[in-house]
Design a protein around this nucleic acid. Structure first.
Lengths: 136, 136
DNA sequence: TAGTGCTGGTCTCTTTTTGAAACCACCATT
DNA sequence: AATGGTGGTTTCAAAAAGAGACCAGCACTA
């Protein structure tokens, strides 16, 4: 067997999970990761991890999200089971979004990544500045 | 230490980091997170965490990425300091991509998220199916 | 009673991002 | 002389995202 091809097939445990052992057409881990790797998903999960919020509150909390993307991202998070949506029959009706148990359990590893980002954003910004300065 | 209180404190710290103390729009942590939350970024970091790969190897490894997005994502990962790019003067010249120390340190928390996804993809798919079934 | 505002959205239009595919120069092999 | 592998760039179409108008329903106000 060609060693190059063999090396391509030899993958780490985590990478196997990510690639479903070479079957890219149906990879659950990639499917899940891509569901929370959108531009606004993780941010909204962070916000809702603190406490439930209503639609308008989230809109004011994240001022640079469009109303359209807020609706859509919350819909997707709800569909994937991370977020619970509850309508209260007030006048006018108010809608509260909160994390489900699944959402809270996903928040734990997400938190790791955010803490890493908090510790390393200086390094990233320095790398970015150095890279841009070295460009012709 | 009471684990509930500990978790609450951790949550609030992370929330503050993500929100820049209430200022969501201009937040360093968000800047870092959004740099790795692209569609292909995490997947390529996972691959390079195993071992360095050349451009063509990555292209074959991730068959559903376009050459254009592979170039662009690797460029961004390099710019943010996660990936090192080295050109070898072979004929034809070959280009090797590898994780930097920063990239490896980021891989650790990312791995947590992937492992969570591996453990919970059934729950997510069930939530999705239940949600779709409940739609009119 | 007509106007105004707040609720949580949808609809339409424009801009940005992504995908698909062709193209490139170089060199080795066939 | 044609073919294939190297690591890309370029071009054009499709998809996604952003900006802003619009909507129904009710409360409050003038």
């Amino acid at each position: 067997m060609d060693s190059k091809i063999f090396n391509l097939k030899a993958k780490l445990e985590v990478y196997k999970a990510m690639t479903n052992g070479g079957n890219f057409a149906d990879c659950p881990v990639r499917d899940v990761i891509q569901g929370i790797s959108g531009k606004w998903s993780s941010l909204l999960v962070m916000a809702l991890a603190e406490k439930p919020y209503r639609f308008g509150e989230l809109r004011r909390l994240v001022p640079d999200i469009s109303q359209r993307m807020l609706t859509q991202t919350l819909y997707e998070l709800q569909r994937d089971g991370y977020v619970h949506r509850e309508v209260f029959p007030t006048k006018p009706p108010s809608v509260e979004y909160s994390l489900t148990d699944l959402g809270r359990s996903m928040f734990a590893p997400l938190q790791m990544l955010v803490q890493w980002a908090e510790l390393n954003h200086d390094a990233v910004r320095e790398a970015r500045a150095a890279f841009d300065a070295a460009q012709p």
